[in-house]
Deep mutational scan, measured.
Amino acid sequence: MALNTPQITPTKKITVRAIGEELPRGDYQRCPQCDMLFSLPEINSHQSAYCPRCQAKIRDGRDWSLTRLAAMAFTMLLLMPFAWGEPLLHIWLLGIRIDANVMQGIWQMTKQGDAITGSMVFFCVIGAPLILVTSIAYLWFGNRLGMNLRPVLLMLERLKEWVMLDIYLVGIGVASIKVQDYAHIQAGVGLFSFVALVILTTVTLSHLNVEELWERFYPQRPATRRDEKLRVCLGCHFTGYPDQRGRCPRCHIPLRLRRRHSLQKCWAALLASIVLLLPANLLPISIIYLNGGRQEDTILSGIMSLASSNIAVAGIVFIASILVPFTKVIVMFTLLLSIHFKCQQGLRTRILLLRMVTWIGRWSMLDLFVISLTMSLINRDQILAFTMGPAAFYFGAAVILTILAVEWLDSRLLWDAHESGNARFDD
């Protein structure tokens, strides 16, 4: 018995066209964080690309023209004298008006014999932002004059995390709450300039795509075929072959399989920071003279006294001054041990922890910024005066060393310790 099946006739004509040209192939790229070699397709503007294995951002879609970056830099340069030299806060102490600005706080630190601690604050609040705007201006002028731009481009990517104007702005709020127990506070004209400078700096850093600047100024022929001998440069993120001198053909720094002496430098910085954190938390970090009496505060006791007036601000200072430094030390110690013992479990967790400490590390400088600003506000000789204690130097040095330890660690070593050939990683 035959089955009668109805015929289905399409209502619209289906047209099949042959592909007349070869589909576009992607360029081969190595991930600078996990060293995976993959094919990167062509990316349009405002599109980002991520590593298929570790999800690290390979290409950032946010990109401004150099002219727009230069305009932002010149605007920031105009704001800087007002943000640093004009009063941020006014207080009335014992019937006398006192003005506080950024430069005055750094000068008070240096004047009291601790120039190293003052230079830490100076670099993060004044030096690094000033280098940022002058570097962008150098790129703008240098591109037109045919100057060598490689050193500036190499420095810009590392400079971003040292620009800490946003953290200093939080420190202004913390210092205001600490001082309000002794005097009446009012915002100064410099505060508005400083807030504007923070906003412009944040926007500029978020749109400063150094890798795209490398592509514009020093374009290189990408690798179009897969080759395990391809290496990625950690300076400019170019994937290719080393030249005859073993250097990256684009930025001219040595092109090595792994960062040289990464573990040794990381261990040295980490152990030194552990040693410095002990006096930083045991010795007094601030000293207040009130009517001839002397009151010393460690980091913890200062947080407890701050909690009596504002528990939320005390929580912020606790996280930045105690929780973050010790968390960074514990995480980095764990990561280094996992590399030495070739741990194969929990790779995803370790990668996330490394990215976390990379982002939060700079916030530990908050305590030094609060001390710097408070020193310029309260300084009335023996009637009422505020000065920093010996722990300030140890704390600042420990924070900087932990930042350097994270920067010096080559994250690809975590993958080397893991089993080879993993296309995915999980716990």
Rank of each mutant, 00 (worst) to 15 (best):
G346H: 13
S48D: 15
R25C: 10
E42V: 09
G171H: 03
P52L: 11
A423P: 09
G127I: 01
K13Q: 11
R158M: 14
D367Q: 00
S372V: 06
Q47L: 12
D427N: 15
S338W: 13
Y182M: 15
A314G: 05
M109H: 02
N101R: 03
I8T: 08
L384N: 01
S308K: 14
I288T: 01
S45K: 14
V195W: 06
C266Q: 01
C54R: 00
G315Q: 15
L156N: 04
F425V: 12
I330H: 11
L154H: 11
I177N: 04
L77F: 13
I403C: 07
I58R: 12
N310I: 06
Q345C: 12
N44M: 11
G396R: 00
M147W: 11
L156P: 01
Q244F: 06
Q382S: 13
I91C: 09
L271H: 03
F123G: 01
I330L: 14
I319G: 13
F74M: 13
L3Q: 11
G173Y: 04
Q108P: 12
T334Q: 10
A392H: 01
G95C: 03
F217S: 13
D297Y: 03
Q244S: 08
Q108C: 15
A18V: 15
D427S: 13
A70I: 15
D297P: 01
S119T: 06
L306H: 00
Q344N: 09
A2P: 14
P390D: 07
E22R: 09
F395A: 01
C236A: 00
L132Q: 04
D416L: 12
F425Y: 15
V152A: 07
D243K: 06
T334L: 15
Q7V: 10
L300V: 04
H46S: 10
C266E: 02
T224Y: 07
H46Q: 11
F194H: 10
A73H: 13
E212Y: 15
L78G: 05
T349A: 11
N310R: 15
N209E: 07
M72E: 07
S48T: 10
C34T: 00
V406R: 02
A392K: 02
Y394P: 02
G235A: 05
W92R: 12
I177W: 07
L66V: 15
I91A: 02
R348N: 12
G127D: 02
L368K: 02
C54F: 00
R259S: 07
L154R: 01
R30S: 09
D166T: 15
T204F: 05
M332G: 13
I167C: 07
I91E: 15
F194C: 12
L366I: 09
A128H: 02
L377G: 02
H46F: 15
W363E: 00
I319S: 11
P87C: 10
I126D: 05
I316N: 07
T204W: 02
L145Q: 10
L404C: 09
Q382W: 11
D63Y: 15
C248E: 00
T202E: 15
